[in-house]
Nucleic acid binder design. Sequence first.
DNA 1: AGCACA
Length: 287
Amino acid sequence: MAHPPYDPYYHHHHHQHQLPPPQLNDKSDRNGINTLFVSGLPDDIKAREIHNLFRRRPGFDSCQLKYTGRGNQVVAFATFFNHQSALAALHSLNGVKFDPQTGSILHIELARSNSRRKRKPGSGAYVVIDNRTREGNSTQETSSNDADSKSDESSDTENQDSVNKVDSVTTKSGEIVADSDNAVAAANQPEKNIDGSPCSTLFIANLGPNCTEDELKQVLSHYSGFNMLKLRARGGMPVAFADFEDIKQANKVMDELRGRVLPSSDRGGMHIEYARSKMRKTEKKTE
DNA sequence: AGCACA
């Protein structure tokens, strides 16, 4: 238990034992993984819904839906252009209540291996792999595209008993936008809800204890559409809300600054996601 | 817990 008395991290893990050193087997080699493994999905999930869940995430590439063949279990894979984007999506969507009707909670982990399938231009943005036990139909793929998502999987099996409980997630236009049902559910749920709905205000966390409003403001001011910044302390660690004129501009900033390490940071890159609600107008008085 | 495609 001899520890350097100057160890700044001592107070954070002064348990009886130190953490074991990272192993060199394949299990701990996850820093290069840019694919997420998604479970906890309702069994009537559509590939299009998975795609809509991830398509607005910065760094998103493509996704696949897989019927495992064990019961009606469905899992999905979402691939990003880099590890950091995958992690960011993992952190903001893991534990989210996916279907307020059934209470399905998303469970997201890093995949065991990266997706090999590259999204070729002109090919589908998502894919279905059907391993359900049906002779002569062991593996079936369906691909689709953003602009042309007319695939309708509801005709390829007789196992479907219920297909009517997914309307709370997507609209007819295929966007994840909180419709009235979702809005009510979100308002009544203190927990995390589907946060795929874009907002022109960004929530920024994982800031160092010495991060200042000026430091952040200087970085943000390089982007067009930046409106204003508010820095708040939560239990000692600051978080920030950055407001932009436009969702597109907020998206760009999210893309560029996600994971960016500020000089003041002692804990890695910034964690950025859409704020739950748009920043209100500036008041003369601050609390 | 359940991790495919090449």
